[in-house]
Amino acid sequence: MRHILAILLENEAGALSRIVGLFSQRAFNIESLTVAPTDDNSLSRITIATIGDDKVLEQIVKQVNKLVDVIKISELTDRKHVERELLLIKVLANTDKSRTEVKRITDIFRGAIVDIGKQIYTIELTGDGDKLNAFIETLSNETEIIESVRSGCVGIARGEKAMRL
């Protein structure tokens, strides 16, 4: 089963490598990982999407928590939450038809064309993983995909509860 984990940790040299090292050392799966400092610059927040059964998930949570740099970890997928991922994608737009179709599909998915070249459109889209997958699939039916990059998901719990110090 897929789980999304939010981790709050000290924004210190080596902290990220401890997390990544732990996952590889204990053969835990990483589907995606994102990291950046939070509004409090002394803290970083990591979002990890992983796959595993309940027993594996329990070990992941405990092992991550055991790292000295880690302040909090919580699983987002067992509660109401918002999950987003950013996609930047370059597609071939070298005919009238493809330019029109790409524009149309982008509008339907509420994306934005952020750069235009002689033959290429660069599009930005945010959403959950399924939406991004659907967008890419739709685009690929109409034109050629040249390059794509996804941020990996970030997530936050809904409601009053906050993950802070």
Partner: peptide, 13 residues
């Protein structure tokens, strides 16, 4: 620090 990462409780640079 990299070499010992999996076998320490913690490390400092």
């Amino acid at each position: 620090v990299g070499c010992t990462r999996p076998i320490i409780k913690h490390s400092f640079n």
